[in-house]
């Protein structure tokens, strides 16, 4: 057999290997990995059938304090797009996860890297010099934008842009997906406005004085979205657990200001919250702040409704179970 004949003899085998892999590439879904489950849900809404999504967090963690677990590295190593909330929310673990993944395209600056917070109108952005004596402050602003449907719709623009960069063949579909998502968030926004009407009208009757206090300022976007105001936070400094003295002071101040609800995420220490309730007599509303794919609030709409209903129930019946 001549050398040419030998080469041509291999062609069917090579074709058999290459064609399936080419077709697999052509129909392969874009693998999107996000930090918080809400962003994975957004990516699925925007990307539709072209994407498969996975969130690193389960939705019951404090997204500020998570370890760079090796499983995160494995998932990001296979990803086409990695999308984080940004605004320093994941600064404690994502840089290590991304570096260890050995995946060049999802490193900051790569086509598959996306920070949803970049498109959001950021609240509480600091204009003064920041240092650690101020606690765990975020100089770029409050990163908990995902609790507002409209802010989340803004963040979705970054996800759509990343999908377009890595999969330009479906640009039109991603644009359509983004537009449909904005409409969906607008409708949800209106629904939650209606749900919160009793609380809003109570606040209006009180001359706009705040009826609630937060444990940590992570509901700012939610409250801002629905015209509600906050008395402040139980924490004296962000990320620093309140001392006994602080608890006493803030409980007395909130009680004196006729605050009705203490709003906290479900991952904060229950003992501290209970102590605040004992000292102030103010009702606690403890809610998840992220979608929990394996928990009770699997969709973003469910989560928004749950938070709104919990608040309204607290001011109308003054009894909400933790």
């Amino acid at each position: 057999m001549t050398s040419n004949a030998k080469i041509t003899g291999f062609i069917p085998y090579i074709m058999a290997l290459v064609i399936p892999s080419l077709s697999a590439t052509a129909f392969a879904k874009v693998k999107v990995v996000t930090t918080i489950p809400d962003l994975a849900w957004v990516a699925a809404e925007v990307g539709g059938d072209h994407v498969e999504t996975k969130a690193l967090l389960r939705g019951n963690e404090n997204a500020h304090f998570v370890d760079a677990v090796p499983e995160f590295t494995r998932l990001t190593a296979d990803a086409d797009v990695v999308c984080i909330a940004g605004l320093d929310l994941e600064v404690g673990y994502m840089p290590a996860v991304l570096t260890r993944s050995g995946n060049a395209k999802i490193q900051p600056g790569g086509a598959g890297y996306c920070e949803a917070g970049k498109s959001v109108q950021v609240l509480e952005k600091l204009t003064t010099a920041v240092d650690r004596s101020m606690g765990d402050v975020h100089p770029a602003g409050n990163p908990h934008f995902y609790l507002s449907p409209k802010a989340l719709a803004d963040g979705a623009k970054e996800i759509a842009a990343a999908l377009t960069r890595v999969d330009p063949a479906h640009t039109i579909d991603y644009r359509k997906g983004l537009a449909a998502f904005a409409v969906k968030m607008d409708a949800l926004d209106k629904e939650i406005v209606n749900l919160l009407k009793p609380l809003k009208s109570l606040q209006d009757k009180a001359g706009g004085k705040p009826l609630l206090i937060e444990y940590h300022r992570e509901f700012s976007y939610f409250l801002n979205e629905y015209g509600l105001t906050s008395f402040g936070s139980i924490e004296e400094k962000p990320g620093v657990p309140p001392s006994a003295g602080r608890l006493g002071e803030i409980a007395a101040a909130a009680k004196a200001a006729d605050v009705r609800i203490a709003l906290a995420a479900d991952y904060y220490p229950k003992k501290t919250l209970e102590r605040f309730r004992e000292l102030s007599g103010i009702e606690l509303v403890v809610v998840p702040t992220m979608i929990q794919p394996s928990g009770s609030y699997k969709t973003y709409a469910d989560l928004q409704r749950h938070i709104a209903n919990s608040l309204v129930t607290a001011v109308t019946t003054r009894s909400v179970k933790i």
Binding site: A77, L98, T99, R100, S101, G102, N103, A104, Q107
Partner: peptide, 9 residues
């Protein structure tokens, strides 16, 4: 570097 060789650093 973690950008030169896929899945490697």
């Amino acid at each position: 570097s973690s950008k030169l060789i896929p899945r490697s650093r």
